Amino acid sequence: MTHPTLIAAVCLTLLGQGVLAQDYPQTIVHAFGTTVLTAKPERIATVAWANHEVPLALGVVPVGMAAAKFGDDDGDGLLPWVVTALDDLGADVPVLFDEGDGIDFEGVAATDPDVILAAYSGLSQSDYDTLSQIAPVVAYPDQPWAADWREMIRLNAAGMGMVAEGDALIAELEGQIAAEVAAYPVLQGKTAMFVTHVDGRDLSTLSFYTAADTRVRFFADLGLGLPQAVRDASADGTFSAQVSAERIDDFADADIVVNYGGVDLVDAMTANPLTARMAAVQTGSVVLLGNDPMGTAANPTPLSIPFVLDDYVALLADAASRTE
């Protein structure tokens, strides 16, 4: 596991060398048009999942950010790698926005931000318009919830006036991923699919994420391919798809299945005459993720990658070894 501050250190070293100046005004293109920044933002707020990890990884503490819901074991609104980053920076916990019912517009406004980062989010046009009345907003590049970890870093770093630092962070993370994957050659040539939340009491349909989803896109970073049926379902750009379990043989080339759930779900899939035909179920090549910090590992973010990469890759490699 690589300490998050090592990533920030790369960027701060470059900053000290005076090579990271960013000219203004800056124009950032995203799904809702363009955002123009006339000066480097000082007060940075973030909304939605994990956008706050970009400033934290670059050594900047946001004035406000969304509280974690999924994977928050102790209920403090912070995932463990965020706690570590704040501790490393000697910073207090920023204002935490409760997004249980959507964007906390009043909470965001109260932090008086210079910019609002939301490169990985599901902002609607209405959300964007309302936030834009508070401060300039950096939204996702194309589709909601479709920006991968690189796009999240690039867009949010641009919104902070830290383009070069963001590029350095991406390069550092790519190196960590490559080194970890190299230790598990068993992953090469294997395919994986990410099944969405499945109810073991009703396995009549199979829902799964497509290549438009960040979880599935991360498979490519880890040396894994996609079953043909998943590639086919990805053509229209939607991030998930669903088929009747009667078509389970369409996924005969899926070596590994990743899913949120417990052993009881695997038992149900094994007992079901249709899902039991899946090669991954027959070999036990199923990676189960729970509602805990490890459960967020499959959705890579700037700080979670170094924190849980080794554990996640080890789980995938163990599943891959069962197919040998």
Rank of each mutant, 00 (worst) to 15 (best):
K190D: 09
T34E: 15
D167G: 09
L169G: 01
T191C: 04
R247N: 07
D72H: 04
I44D: 05
M1R: 09
Q17P: 03
D98F: 11
A139L: 01
P293A: 11
D236Q: 03
A57P: 10
A119I: 13
G122P: 08
I153V: 05
N259W: 06
I170K: 04
A183W: 08
V216I: 10
P41I: 11
E324D: 11
A192V: 01
A252D: 06
W81I: 04
V82I: 13
E53L: 02
E42R: 15
A66K: 06
L315K: 11
V36T: 13
A157V: 14
P306G: 08
D74R: 02
Q133C: 05
D142H: 07
F194N: 03
L155P: 10
D87R: 09
L315F: 00
A320G: 03
E151G: 06
L289A: 05
Q242Y: 15
V198G: 00
A183P: 00
V61H: 11
A48G: 00
R43T: 15
Q125Y: 14
S204Q: 07
L173V: 08
D98H: 09
Q26Y: 01
V243I: 14
L289V: 03
V93M: 02
T35P: 12
S285I: 02
S240H: 05
D250C: 07
P293T: 04
M193S: 01
Y312W: 04
D92P: 08
A168P: 07
D318P: 04
G295D: 09
L289S: 06
E53N: 09
H197P: 01
I44S: 13
F307D: 13
K69N: 09
V198S: 12
P94K: 06
G75L: 01
P185G: 03
Y128S: 06
A298G: 10
P293N: 00
A157C: 12
M65H: 04
P25G: 08
F239E: 00
V281I: 10
L316Y: 02
A158W: 08
D104S: 06
T214K: 07
A118C: 06
G237P: 07
M193V: 12
Q26C: 02
R150T: 07
T34N: 14
A254G: 08
V181C: 02
A183Q: 10
V10E: 13
